[in-house]
Write a protein that binds this DNA or RNA. Sequence first.
DNA 1: AATTTGGGTCAGCCTTATTGACATATCTCA
DNA 2: TGAGATATGTCAATAAGGCTGACCCAAATT
Lengths: 167, 167
Amino acid sequence: MASPSSDAEDLPLRPSSEAVPHDLIELLFFAYRDFVGDPDRILADYGFGRAHHRVLHFVQRRPGLTIAELLDILQITKQSLNRVLKELVEKGYIEQRTGRQDKRQRHLHTTPSGQDLALRLVRLQAKRINRALEGAAPETAAIAARYLAALIDAAERPKVERLLDKP
Amino acid sequence: MASPSSDAEDLPLRPSSEAVPHDLIELLFFAYRDFVGDPDRILADYGFGRAHHRVLHFVQRRPGLTIAELLDILQITKQSLNRVLKELVEKGYIEQRTGRQDKRQRHLHTTPSGQDLALRLVRLQAKRINRALEGAAPETAAIAARYLAALIDAAERPKVERLLDKP
DNA sequence: AATTTGGGTCAGCCTTATTGACATATCTCA
DNA sequence: TGAGATATGTCAATAAGGCTGACCCAAATT
């Protein structure tokens, strides 16, 4: 292999801006798939899907959330949100309360059964994460969190960090 | 708050098997979304979607892959695979070669334009990852990779590790 | 020769998302 | 007060990417 293209292989290290970390790319795909796979199986028993899970999760995490805030977190259209939200309300997992100050707003809350389901799902995901952290170096959780946060669009990051910080 | 439920808050640390790392749960959602968002925008120009990306990616990474091997990696049905694969072949991004030893098999390869597109996409994802690693501690890449691998189903992990190790 | 394996395909269905258009109630501000 | 902006809800059509089930063919294996 004396072709010009062999040059790259002979270099000690390419600048990090050109290196392609195939492992990190592919691991994110596999990890994410299995991570959401756990809840998916349970949700199917309720006739719910991944979209319902996201809504339930963030409503559980930020009780009193408005529709507009939820749309901003999920970054989907209100039509998409409305379908799953309506189902969650109809089946008694989420409750809408008209705003006191601003009566146009709907504040979202989980009902007791909504809380049960949300807790069940979050514990399942926590179990997978905690299992992954068990044998790992103690800094793993902090480093992984920082890494994942750094993957988020710079423009979105402050919003996400605000979301995670508060409660 | 002297109710029984306040006990948990007074404990110094719950056992890791019960703690719920909300940040790691939510960060994975946001990070994954933005991570796949980059390629999505480019793929739209070609009339392709995320599913095409996955196929193209793994064919590029493991030239000569058979249909069965690809199905095993992606964990979708052959009907689902076939639709996107057919489009990639018809549009000239992937080529199928009948196996020499076993003529039933189809070995998949990227064409020159397939390689161009795959490279363009992988560089885009690499850029996001490398940007995330830039300011981070030097162990970040290794720790993140170990963490993500540990999130994968134990049964799948050896297969994935084999996939990542080889080339 | 019979069976298994690798791959292809038809048909129908579901979920999650999109765009575009429009309706209603409420709030804000000049 | 009246006009316009805002928060939400809803109808209709479309697309992507999955699924199941039922078949088919050709080649390999036994």
